[in-house]
Write a protein that binds this DNA or RNA. Structure first.
Lengths: 256, 256
DNA sequence: TGTACATCAGTGAACGCGCGTTCACTGATGTAC
DNA sequence: TGTACATCAGTGAACGCGCGTTCACTGATGTAC
């Protein structure tokens, strides 16, 4: 992706997130911000209805009553819009998860983990195409720019917060000895994490993250068909049970 | 999908799997079978190179030196070709996993689990688009017909085989008591499984299946970027370690 | 406050692309007698 | 073994579609003096 496009994304983010630009703005600038926001919103609706593959600038323009070339005043090309929507999706699930975690008592570690897991699943069920966009197959021919990495880490950061608090409370399990290569493999992650968190605990955390996404993906992508009853209440019971087990395996809750 | 298309799929499967039709065949029938197989092969190559979204009957026809309308003599439409390729992918990973499992000593349960896990991951890395096709986001506007369910169960069946042998060897963990709703949710699965396997063990198995696919998806879909070192040997060490832990949690191997 | 110029949003036409699918056809292969 | 007819594979043209992107343009909004 070109530098021009990247700097567009950076600028557009201000608009999309804050809903307004901070500097005193002329009528023209306010109109521009407003329409940029409308484009992202219509794009999100299309994404939600038909998935990323069907997203087209022409269709977005039609919905806004503009001629197709007019959107190019706001968005340099299709990929840039996709980038905005990816960031938007990460922020959407990130905000949901942060909220769910914050609503729990800080010391209730298994409760926090379960709330986080449920909130990822709930968001995924409500926004299946957005879930697929960020946690499913990559869109072919599209390479996510670095702008997406910040928002992408919001959910994992909440999970790491639980691990950090577990250590702080002295409730972390005794770290296991690890093979040299395994330790080496974690180098990038360990840089981004408080060093109270051990490599072993990080591995456990990554495993639970994988189980969380794997279980949701199995459900959303149809692999629980003929496996787990379709009834929503039973699906929820199944998921809760699995995640409760994960919390136990993580050491957040005692074996019952 | 119409009945005509479904019966086509059933017929084509004979051709694709066996490489020949069993009944004595005329030259014309042999030519037909041969070209059908070529179409699937070219389709697979396109899928491997550019993913499902880019798969087009016209491009396949071009590669075979045919005019685009000619492929309609062999394949009723694009979705039918996609169905064949999905079945093909399930059979490909299924065969790989069955082979990996069969190469282990029957009684080495953790060794078998690790071999299975590695073989899914190895296949996924070799065939990323095919992995995405079957375990990633569903193709929008495409509904998998029932023909795919048989091949889709090959890998899970191998995993279940390990659980069955664990029970037969008397090495299964004491089943936990489960909430009524959780037990009810498993009804479809329990019908398809020998009743020596308890519901609790089934839940553990599903969890490890989720962790396996989740961990592979995290890696393949780019979510280990800046988390786990990119070096293939380190990635492999990371994966092996995580799967070894899963085997322990499953009760296949003693806590070390 | 008024004028002259610069900036920008939005228009409409166009380019070039590739797709799925249909259809009337030609010519080769297979079958029945 | 030979002929008459039926079946089928493959052709080539066409329909209708939607897409991303560019470009010269008009007219409205903003700015400098």
């Amino acid at each position: 992706m070109s530098r021009a496009v990247l700097s567009f994304v950076a600028a557009a983010l201000l608009v999309v997130h804050d809903g307004h630009v901070s500097t005193a703005s002329t009528a023209r600038e306010r109109a521009r911000a407003e329409i940029t926001r409308e484009i992202v919103e219509v794009g999100r609706a299309h994404l939600a209805r038909e998935g990323a593959a069907a997203l087209s600038l022409r269709a977005v323009a039609r919905d806004l009553g503009m001629v197709s070339s007019a959107v190019y005043r706001y968005v340099p090309n299709r990929d840039a819009l996709l980038t905005l929507l990816i960031i938007d999706a990460y922020n959407s699930v990130g905000a949901a998860v942060e909220g769910a975690d914050a609503a729990q008592r800080r010391s209730d570690l298994p409760g926090r983990f379960l709330a986080i897991a449920r909130s990822v699943r709930g968001w995924a069920i409500e926004h299946p195409h957005e879930y697929a966009l960020i946690y499913g197959s990559p869109v072919p021919g599209y390479a996510a720019p670095e702008d997406t990495t910040g928002p992408a880490t919001r959910v994992p950061m909440v999970l790491i917060g639980v691990l950090v608090d577990m250590v702080a409370d002295g409730r972390a399990p005794q770290p296991r000895r690890l093979p040299r290569k395994v330790r080496a493999s974690l180098a990038p992650m360990m840089q981004a994490v408080p060093d109270t968190v051990s490599e072993d605990l990080m591995l456990r955390g990554l495993s639970s993250w994988g189980t969380l996404l794997g279980t949701i993906s199995l459900e959303l992508f149809g692999h629980l068909h003929n496996v787990v009853e379709e009834d929503p209440a039973l699906r929820a019971a199944f998921f809760d049970h699995q995640m409760t087990r994960v919390a136990v395996d993580l050491g957040l809750a005692p074996e019952d």
